[in-house]
Amino acid sequence: MTIGKVNLAAAFATFHDHWNPRVAGDINDFQVKLAKFEGKFDWHHHETEDELFLVVQGRMKMGLRSGDVIVGPGEFIIVPHGTEHCPEALDGECHVLLLEPGTTRNTGTVETDKTRHRLERIG
Rank of each mutant, 00 (worst) to 15 (best):
G4D: 13
G4W: 08
V6D: 03
A9P: 01
A9T: 14
A10T: 10
A10V: 02
A13R: 14
A13D: 11
T14I: 06
F15P: 02
H16Q: 13
D17P: 11
D17E: 12
D17L: 15
H18W: 08
H18A: 05
W19I: 03
P21Q: 10
P21G: 11
P21K: 13
P21N: 11
V23Q: 08
V23T: 14
V23Y: 06
A24T: 10
G25P: 05
G25T: 10
G25H: 11
I27P: 01
I27V: 13
D29K: 14
F30R: 05
Q31N: 08
L34E: 03
L34R: 01
A35S: 13
K36E: 01
E38C: 11
K40L: 07
F41I: 04
H44R: 10
H46K: 06
E47V: 07
E49M: 02
E51Q: 14
E51W: 08
E51F: 12
V55A: 12
V56L: 06
V56R: 04
R59F: 08
M60H: 04
M60G: 12
M60K: 00
M60E: 09
M60P: 02
M62R: 00
M62F: 08
M62G: 05
G63S: 08
G63H: 11
L64E: 04
R65P: 04
R65Y: 06
R65K: 15
S66L: 05
S66T: 15
V69F: 03
V69Q: 13
V69Y: 02
I70N: 07
I70H: 08
V71M: 03
G72H: 09
E75F: 00
F76D: 09
V79E: 00
V79N: 00
P80W: 06
H81C: 10
H81K: 14
H81Y: 03
G82R: 04
G82S: 02
T83R: 01
H85Y: 04
C86Q: 09
A89W: 10
L90T: 11
C94L: 08
C94K: 10
C94E: 04
V96I: 14
V96K: 03
L97E: 09
L98Q: 09
L98F: 12
E100G: 07
E100C: 11
P101I: 08
G102R: 13
T104L: 03
T104W: 01
R105E: 01
R105M: 01
N106A: 06
N106Y: 05
T107M: 12
G108I: 04
G108L: 03
T109C: 09
V110Q: 09
E111D: 12
E111N: 10
E111W: 12
E111V: 13
T112S: 05
D113L: 15
K114P: 02
K114W: 09
T115I: 06
R116E: 07
H117Y: 14
H117I: 02
R118V: 14
L119Q: 07
E120T: 13
